[in-house]
Each structure stands twice: as structure tokens, then as C-alpha cells.
Design a protein around this nucleic acid. Structure first.
Lengths: 465, 465
DNA sequence: GGGTATTTGTCCGTATGTATG
DNA sequence: TCATACATACGGACAAATACC
């Protein structure tokens, strides 16, 4: 019989049975105990090591459960032959590639897309995640509903109705893992029609990418002071338009009601679909909230896109489509064999978060927080720059644009030397060469009011001092 | 001054300050307190209601944080004008659509894709999720790395090397939210080449769908006893092939080494890519594990796909691509503006789960569990059916096929009457009409051994009694 | 108009019960 | 079982705004 004399440390935090298990496992793997031998009996080993019978049994069970040993009742515990690892041994190091040098993090990073983490309800969200995990509904641990958690869709329907005026059934809602996933699905769903899409120019480059990668041709539509140029849209002969009516990205204007109606008329008369990307409509700091385009859509031409990335948590990777009714059946047919791409666990947590009213509260709170940051940013710019810059953007959203009569590359690199990061806007133009040379994007969601103040001050020093 | 006389219930579980907050919120929303009025002072109300000053304060703070009120230090708390909801009032009910009748759940459901939840380490997984949430790295709550959590990719590289013989750098790994997401990305990435893909026939319909929805034409390649028919593949003139070498789906054969080498030669000579879907290679119950095709791929023609859905948890919605080096740059270019579609929180939890060694243990354990289930299933079928059915499938994976000399529709409906669900295989054929009429799919991952035994017994009763 | 007392919101520390590990 | 962390509720101290003389 083999002898086991592992060193068991009672003072350490790891349980005794794990220590024993690890020791035997190591012995087996390193050949100290060869396959076919019987392990010492439970009783013997417990006496030998002065520990409880159950402790030894637990360790043996673990080994057996993982296939190292085999338990033969009333005869002993046999060590099984090891399934040889494919690679004999040696410490693994993956091939190091020459890294693209990473950009150093800047202290004052006006990155658009960052959210305020100081006011995020981590406790509550963690609790919701916990509660979701504690549910015993098995579908929470399998693939989950193809269109998304039913409870979550019900909460979304309620929310969309109350906050955005969108009235829809559960069947019209499709949960996705981000706006880009949503657009990718739409690219696969919509009638090809020559694969042409009209899009605001400038507009959200992330979505442009998706269209291009799906073989679409983008017809750039210029902007007027109050939003998309409808005559250009009419001339485009596109049957599909991607638009941000509530808060144009990146300029920030709000499409007035007259234009909205004309837009809907255009869609109806041309048998076209409009994709309405309502990415940050939650945050308006002045005036009444404006209902969504989808709320006015009687002819079922608008496809509504919403997301939790701005108003809640980007890391949840949750967004949703509201399909026109006439597309739901087609959707089921085409995606019948697709599985949902966002995690059922996170969807359920989000459902709980909404159901308990935390989401509504959170929106209210963040509205206030961002409003103050917005105000701080504007005031700081006016204070430091006076009339040397022009601020572009409505009183809404999580970013503004700054127009400075300087070359943009110079502005950005000078800012970086002062530990401040602002961003170019050229990517938002479908042809980047057309982009203005003197506008930078300033996102303020992720910075504290102090940092905003200090960041703007440094910007001035970097550019004008 | 207004009077507040809310009914506060100390016996109920909801905290006092929440009750007070809710009461005032309701009053404001319903017009009981009009905008502009000052709320009673904290002290006054605390005396009036016989509760602590701070309790009142908490309620007021909540209201202020959510924008209902405004606090003017040392002067009072003012009620702000309500932002009118878009919809005047009325309880919301979403339009109920006529529901497709849902299929009733069956007690003995041999659904492929279900996993064993009895042995799933919920505690540990929850802990990992917790720990992930407790990290203070901000990127965990933002969009996260485009290609996936770095730690997770490092663990994956290690795992792939040791378990599958795949040697790759972090830059080659792309985390995705499921195999279908992965294939969708690949459809957008790979050179068009006439958009033709060769695929095993039968094969995994979920991926077929993705190819079709991306405008690909699928060239069906028949199977021989030992896997894909290479001469048909050569004749197809495709520049892209989607294959399951480790465990052909759904037939289960393993592509022998000679064929693998020929396959790689084919790819090299035709400048073609092979997508290797290694969906359940973890579970082999006999013989030595076989290295992946990618491990033999010296010419950088193989794109490897892996997933956590079978070997861990479908609900994690985690899968990964290993790109050939020569595609990594192209990937970065094409998807530079894409954000990661799986949640950084879940990725980090998975990273922790792997780093601590739990994943390896889990695989070992599940291998044993499924091996026993597999054995139980085979034994039960042989016991009850004798030679009246033919079992198709290697000793691997989480499903088998049963060939019965009966009409498939009849088999399925008769089974349902006995509360047993087995599945048709016709969808796996690219032209479903070519599918054999007498094969059903039997997944055993989600059923206990008792249920497997009972389910098979009922199947026999349903079909032969 | 200026000083004082009062009232105001805010910030601090502490005790208790509960949930978590 | 014990330790820890957290939410809840409480009272007191502080400084600024207000009201009054």
C-alpha cells in the first residue's frame, strides 16, 4: 500500500479536505501514485493524519467526481489512468506579438461613452444580479428566450410607452447585445432593395461600419440647422434611412415635429423603413421631452432602437429593437434558429431592476447629475474661453462639440501634453475628408464636476497660453 | 405651509424613509403638493411624525436626487415642477397579440443544448460574478475591450494550448456572444469570393442560417463513415468551409488524422479558409482526446471556434474565435469601431472562474457526469429496444441519434403523448427534403439518469407498446 | 442697519438587526 | 459558528440663512 503524508495546515484558510485533495491530485498527475493502485482506505488515512473520516471522504469524492479515481464500494478507491494532456508539459507561454503601443490613459479624458460611475447604484444592481442567480428557473441558465426575457420585454413595453410614447406588444420587442448587434440583425432582416441606406452625415460611425460590413452602400444625407435635409433624403431614392431624431449624433439638434411628420410621409410614400436610433433621449436638460418618431408612426414604417448603454450601464451590453408589427413574423422566420446573444442572467437582473422601480429612479437621478455636469462644462468653457470657442449642441445628451479656430490634430496633441483628452469628429463623416477641421468632441459623462472644471482649464492653457 | 400626514407603518418591512419618500412622491405626482411650495422643514416633520430627523432627511434626499425637489441649504426644500409624462395617465396595457400557442413543457425532454444543472457550481460561479462586480476597474463597467477581456483571453490561450493543442497569441482571440455571433463576424470579415461556403450536410443549422442571412450560398458536402467527403469538397470550388472535425454534428463521427491532413492540404492549395467548430470536444468518453484541426494548421488557414455553452453555461453567452495571424490585422481594421457584444462583467467572472482552476475541475467533473448519463442512455435503449433501433454517434458529446423504422412525425407526436420529447433532425440537412425519415435526435445533457431511464422506457411504450 | 436668536439643511458618529460568507 | 458588511434609524454638532428687535 502506498503511503500518503501530505502536509496539512490547519492554520491556513483553505479547508483541510481541499488540501488533501490537491495533494493527492498533484501526486497522481506527477506520477507519484501510479494508475491502478488503491488509495489508502478512508479509515486508515483518517487515523494516520489525525483528521476526521468525513474529511478524507470529501477529498476522495472530489477526486472521484473529477475522474482521477474510481470508487469501488467495499473494495477500495482505485487510481485511474491519467488522460495525458496533449502537450507533454512545460510552462505555457503564449506567443507574444509585437504590441501596438497602447495609448496612455489621460487624467482628464473627455471620452464620449463613459458614464458616471460615482452615482451608479452598484449595491442595488449587485442585489438584482444575485436575485436573478437565485431564481430556480432553469431557462435562466440555458439559452433563454430568442427575443429576450419575457419579463424584461414587458417592463420595456411599459417604459417605452410612458417615457417615449411607443406602444408595442411583447412580440415586437427584440433584446440585443448592443446597438450594433441590433443593426446587424436588421441588415440581415430587411429586404435587400439594392442594399442602400440613407444616413445622416455626419452620424454615428459605429452603425455606419455595420452597414458597410453587411455590404450596404451608404447615401450620405446632409444636415440643416434643425436636422436632416429632407430634400436630399428624397433625392437619395433609398428605401431605408438610419436617423437619430431625438438628439442628432453628433451635432445634437432635435428634429422638430413638422420635419418628423414629413419624414414619416416620405417613408410611407416610398415604402421605406426608418431606423430611429434613440440612444440618449433620456437626458434632456431643458424643455419638455419630445415623443419619439416611433410614437407618431401610424403606418408601421419606423424601426425603433433603444439601449441601456447610455442611461444605465454599457457593460450590461443590452439594447432593444421595436419592430413594426408587419416585420415580426418575418423576424421569427428568419431568425428562428438564432439564439439570443445577450446573457439571460443579465436580462433577468435588468428585469428585476426595472420591476422594482430602481430604473425609473436611476434615470431621474442621473438626469440631474448629468444636467449639473453639463452646466459645469458650459460654464467652465465660457469662463475660460470667453468667445474664443463656439459650443455646439442642445441642452441634452452626454457630449458637446467645441469649435475652435485651430487645426484639430494640433488641438488634440497639445491637450494630451496637458493630460487632457478630447476627440476628433472626422470619423462621423461618411467621407472623413469632408469633416470640418476645427471641431472636437467633448464627452462629459465619465468625469466629475471638479475634473470637468480642471480639464477645461487645462484645455485653455494647452491651446491659448 | 402644507401639512403632511402620511400613514407610516412601523410594522411593515419597508423602511420608514422609503414610505415617507413614496408618500411625498405620490402627492407631488398627483398634484396634492403643487410645484414651488416648500416642504415642511426636516425638524418640524420629524417632531410631527415622531420619527428621527435623519429619517425625514433621507426621504428628502431621495426626492432631491430624483429631481422631484430642490434643496436650498438653510432655507428650505422646494417642490419642482413635474416633467409631464407624455401620456396623460391611465394604466398601461400593451397590445396583446394573438399568441402562437406555446408548446407545453414535457417532463422528459431530450432537448439538445440543455446542460446538467444539478452539478453546476452555482456557489462558485456566483462568487466569481460577485468578485467581478467588486473590482474597481472602471472598464468593467464601460464597454470593455473590443476583442474581449484580456485576462480571459490569456486564460483561454492557456486552456486551448493545453487541452486542444492550439497555440495562439492574445491578439488572435476574439471573444463573442455565442457561436452564431462569431460566424456573423466572420461573414463580415472574410473575403467575399462569391460568398460561397462549403458545409457538411447534415450540419449545424444554426450556423447555416447565419451564412444564408449574410447572403452566402451553401454548398452541401456529403459525409462518409469517417466524416466529410473530401472529393465533394474539392469539387465544390468553395474557398471557405465550415466543419465540425472533432465531433461531427449531428452524426458524431471523428475526422481521422489522415483526413485532417488532406483537409489542410486542400485549404492550402485552394487558398481557402476552414472554420473549425469545436463545440463540444471536451466530452469524449473513450480513447485519447484528439488534437484540434487548428493544432495541425501550419499554414494559417484554420479559423477555430470554441464555446462555453456546452462545457459550462449557455446563459453565459460566451464563445471565442481564434483567428489565423494573417487575419488579425484585417480584423482590427474592419471591426475597429465595433464594441464587444458580450458583457465585460460576465467575461471577468469567467476569467476568475478559469484562473482559480474551477473551470478545469468543472470540465473533469462534467466529463464524468455526462459519461455516466451517456452510458445510462445507451444501456436503457439497448435494454428496452433491443435491436429494434440503431444508435448513431460516437462515445462523445451530449446527444445521440436514434434510427427507428417508423415515420418521424409519428414518433415525435406519440412520444409527446407519453410526456417525452425527442427532436427531428430534418433541419440539419441543407435541403430538409433529403433528410432521412426515421431518425430522431436525443440530447441527454439536461436529464438526470433516472429521467433518462424513465424517458427511454416511455419511448418504448409510446412507440412499440 | 446691525446684532441676536431661531430655524434651516448638512454632516458626523453610533446602535441595532439582517444578510452573507 | 463566528465575523463582517450593510442598511436602517437615531441623536447631536455645525454653519449659514432667516426673522426679529
Amino acid at each position: 500500500m502506498i503511503e500518503l503524508t501530505p502536509f496539512l495546515n490547519k492554520t491556513v484558510r483553505t479547508p483541510l479536505y481541499i488540501q488533501l485533495y490537491q495533494y493527492i491530485k498533484k501526486e497522481i498527475e506527477e506520477g507519484g501514485i501510479s494508475p491502478g493502485t488503491l488509495l489508502p482506505s478512508i479509515r486508515y488515512l483518517s487515523r494516520h493524519l489525525h483528521i476526521s473520516k468525513n474529511t478524507v471522504e470529501s477529498a476522495y469524492q472530489q477526486l472521484t467526481a473529477e475522474g482521477y479515481t474510481e470508487s469501488k464500494p467495499r473494495s477500495g478507491i482505485k487510481v485511474l489512468p491519467l488522460e495525458k494532456p496533449l502537450v507533454p508539459s512545460g510552462h505555457f507561454t503564449y506567443p507574444e506579438r509585437q504590441k501596438r503601443e497602447e495609448e496612455p490613459a489621460r487624467r482628464y479624458d473627455f471620452q464620449y461613452g463613459d458614464i458616471d460611475l460615482d452615482h451608479f447604484p452598484f449595491k442595488t444592481w449587485k442585489k438584482c444580479l444575485q436575485d436573478a442567480m437565485n431564481s430556480d428557473s432553469p431557462e435562466l441558465f440555458l439559452y433563454g428566450d430568442r427575443q429576450g426575457d419575457k419579463g424584461l420585454r414587458a417592463e420595456l413595453a411599459k417604459y417605452l410607452f410612458q417615457a417615449r410614447g411607443v406602444r408595442c406588444s411583447l412580440e415586437q420587442i427584440v433584446v440585443c447585445s448592443g446597438t450594433q448587434s441590433a443593426v446587424s440583425l436588421l441588415c440581415q432582416l430587411l429586404p435587400s432593395n439594392g442594399r442602400v441606406v440613407a444616413a445622416e452625415n455626419p452620424g454615428y460611425d459605429g452603425v455606419h461600419s455595420v452597414f458597410l460590413n453587411h455590404g450596404y452602400t451608404i447615401r450620405p444625407i446632409g444636415l440643416e440647422a434643425d436636422g436632416i435635409d429632407l430634400s436630399q433624403l428624397a433625392e437619395s431614392r433609398a428605401k431605408l434611412a438610419y436617423i437619430t431624431p431625438s438628439h442628432q449624433f453628433p451635432y445634437g439638434m432635435v428634429l422638430p415635429i413638422q420635419k418628423r411628420l414629413k419624414l414619416l410621409k416620405w417613408a410611407d410614400q416610398n415604402d421605406a423603413y426608418i431606423i430611429e436610433d434613440d440612444y440618449d433621449s433620456e437626458f434632456r436638460y431643458q424643455g419638455q421631452p419630445i415623443p419619439s418618431l416611433k410614437a407618431l408612426d401610424t403606418k408601421e414604417n419606423v424601426i425603433y432602437l433603444g439601449t441601456f448603454s447610455k442611461c444605465f450601464l454599457p457593460a450590461a451590453r443590452l439594447s432593444y429593437i421595436v419592430l413594426p408589427e408587419r416585420l415580426t413574423e418575418q423576424f421569427c422566420e428568419r431568425f428562428g434558429r438564432y439564439s439570443q446573444s445577450s446573457s439571460p442572467m443579465i436580462q433577468r437582473a435588468m428585469y428585476l431592476f426595472m420591476k422594482e422601480g430602481f430604473f425609473e429612479r436611476h434615470i431621474r437621478k442621473m438626469k440631474k447629475v448629468y444636467q449639473e455636469k453639463h452646466q459645469t462644462l458650459i460654464s467652465a468653457i465660457e469662463k475660460h474661453f470667453g468667445h474664443e470657442v463656439n459650443i455646439i449642441g442642445e441642452k441634452a445628451g452626454l457630449h458637446i462639440l467645441m469649435e475652435v479656430r485651430r487645426d484639430i490634430k494640433d488641438l488634440i496633441s497639445k491637450a494630451e501634453k496637458h493630460d487632457v483628452k478630447v476627440y476628433p469628429v472626422s470619423d462621423f463623416w461618411i467621407d472623413p475628408h469632408e469633416s470640418p477641421s476645427s471641431i472636437v468632441m467633448v464627452g462629459f459623462g465619465g468625469l466629475s464636476e471638479q475634473d470637468i472644471e480642471e480639464g477645461v482649464k487645462r484645455l485653455y492653457q494647452a491651446w491659448f497660453a
